[in-house]
């Protein structure tokens, strides 16, 4: 699966997160090696999105540690911007910037955070937009695009900074069913190219196809994790079986 020489790319240790009195994540351990595709599954409110938001430091954690490339990033003294600039995040609701063109959406972070020259940033963004079938939309504003196109643009925006880790938070959940395929095709291609990804998803067949590891979350805990064929076909836990019976047809 991984080279294994430099240790895991991302490591979550005994992570605990509460909102007031409510425990959202409890004693979560997760290890993601370079090139891994980790799928987080579980019902709504199980903590999948919160886990992703903790990893890219959008949420403060209550306990535990998060390490990126061996360095603790959950330390309050760490430069959060620098950490985030090494990760790409795509949200369920795209969150593109409506006042900027697709191209400007994609070049904002490379130019302002990574100090890439405008021409260079645009060349790279155009190449990625081309690759993902959005070349003719580069000059348009996001609201002129379909949901699937917007989500693909959001993926390109996240990729433009050449992140070492990609976090995808239920990126197909807000899409019409016929648009889901075009977005998943891109994620599939990224997986084949060896992009390291952690994704929360409701698409079980997709998880089975691309994941190297599937984690089943229940009430803020990772109840079980393992290769997709094991978790999705022969789960150990009764909760997992119940969940799969609800979401898998037949």
């Amino acid at each position: 699966m991984t080279g294994g020489t430099a240790g895991p790319l991302l490591e979550v240790q005994a992570l605990r997160k509460t909102y007031g009195a409510r425990l959202v994540l409890d004693d979560v351990d997760l290890s993601v090696g370079a090139g891994d595709v980790v799928c987080l599954i579980g019902s709504s409110g199980s903590g999948k999105s919160t886990l992703l938001r903790c990893v890219n430091l959008l949420e403060d954690i209550d306990d535990g540690r998060i390490l990126l490339e061996g360095r603790e990033i959950s330390d309050p003294l760490v430069d959060q911007r620098e950490v985030r600039s090494r990760m790409g995040t795509v949200f369920q609701a795209y969150n593109l910037f409506p006042h900027l063109t697709v191209l400007d959406n994609c070049t904002l972070a490379p130019r302002r955070v990574h100090g890439v020259a405008r021409r260079e940033a645009e060349t790279r963004a155009r190449a990625l937009l081309e690759e993902f079938g959005l070349a003719e939309h580069a000059g348009q504003h996001p609201d002129r695009l379909s949901g699937g196109q917007q989500q693909r643009a959001a993926l390109v925006r996240a990729l433009c900074t050449e992140p070492s880790l990609l976090l995808l938070d239920e990126i197909t959940a807000a899409l019409d069913p016929e648009l889901v395929g075009e977005v998943l095709a891109i994620v599939r291609r990224l997986a084949e190219q060896g992009t390291t990804m952690v994704l929360a998803t409701h698409e079980m067949s997709f998880a089975r196809e691309v994941a190297t590891t599937v984690c089943f979350l229940h009430e803020g805990r990772i109840l079980e994790q393992g290769p997709p064929e094991q978790i999705l076909t022969a789960p150990r836990e009764e909760r997992t079986r119940q969940f799969l019976r609800r979401v898998l047809p037949g």
Partner: peptide, 8 residues
């Protein structure tokens, strides 16, 4: 949140 996530 989106701007934060991009490192701005």
């Amino acid at each position: 949140a989106s701007a934060d996530a991009l490192g701005l």
